[in-house]
């Protein structure tokens, strides 16, 4: 769900050790990278390395059907063009539905694949969801390794609150990190009456730095990144001057890392 805000189509690269996703957003300003290790699943089996090209918009709609207590099983057969999701319903109050999402191939003239929704209230207590797999070129490039001058670790809820609040006031934000202070200042305020800087130094902030950095970013993207805040109690902001910001959420058996290109010049 976090990725679908940034990326509409992506390949899940599956191998024996993990499931990975790496994709740029449509405007090529942000990059999202996700890894979920095999131990993060109750059971995991991958007989053959394969990419699963998935329309994330459709997948998100399917995932909304799940409840917290549901156990979700994902299956893709060899040479199959369908990703099958099965939800085990544990709640006696769960209303069973059957959904079938089907499309064959991608029509370039169609921005969204046609799908058919079938519902029944009397089917057994599980859901079968089929999402067809699109044929995309697998992303084989390596993870972009970068050394950063600063790392700021803070509670993810604080980061979410900061960028959400500032996005109400402006379109861009300048993040400056010095030895003891992180200054997050809004830019291009929509209202001149709200033009003062907003320093946000919440508790639980750890600053590691080799060099002072000052970078400007689009708040819209930071707000989208912060949607991953529920995955981890902490978020790390890694920055160097004139290179993309890395917003990293690590969880027990994986991570979601979002890169954002800065604005240059003034």
């Amino acid at each position: 769900k976090s990725c679908s805000i940034l990326v509409t189509d992506a390949n899940f690269e599956c191998n024996e050790e993990n499931i990975m996703l790496q994709a740029m957003d449509n405007s090529h300003i942000a990059l999202v990278s996700v890894e979920i290790g095999a131990p993060g699943f109750t059971s995991y089996r991958c007989d053959r390395t394969m990419p699963l090209g998935v329309d994330l918009t459709s997948l998100t709609k399917v995932l909304r059907c799940a409840k917290d207590e549901n156990i979700c099983t994902l299956k893709a057969a060899d040479e199959a063009d369908v990703l099958n999701l099965v939800y085990d319903a544990k709640s006696a109050f769960f209303s069973p539905f059957f959904f079938a999402f089907m499309w064959h191939g991608r029509d370039a003239s169609s921005p969204f694949p046609p799908f058919f929704l079938l519902c029944s209230a009397l089917l057994p207590l599980f859901i079968h969801l089929n999402i067809s797999l699109s044929s995309q070129t697998p992303i084989t490039s390596s993870w972009p390794e970068t050394k950063y001058d600063t790392r700021v670790t803070l509670p993810s809820a604080e980061f979410t609150r900061i960028v959400r609040d500032l996005s109400q006031l402006g379109e861009h934000v300048r993040i400056e990190v010095s030895k003891e202070v992180v200054r997050i200042s809004k830019l291009k305020a929509k209202s001149s009456a709200e033009d003062e800087d907003n320093d946000s130094i919440p508790t639980g902030v750890v600053i590691e730095m080799n060099q002072h950095v000052s970078l400007t970013f689009s708040l819209k993207y930071l707000v989208n990144f912060s949607k991953s805040g529920s995955l981890s109690g902490e978020v790390q902001l890694l920055m160097s001057n004139d290179v993309p910001l890395l917003v990293a959420y690590d969880f027990t058996q994986g991570y979601i890392r979002c890169y954002l290109a800065p604005k240059i010049g003034d």
Partner: peptide
């Protein structure tokens, strides 16, 4: 006006 750089300019491998 600041200009927005694309992510691929920093990570050519992409």
């Amino acid at each position: 006006e600041a200009s927005q750089i694309e992510i691929g300019d920093y990570f050519p491998v992409l």
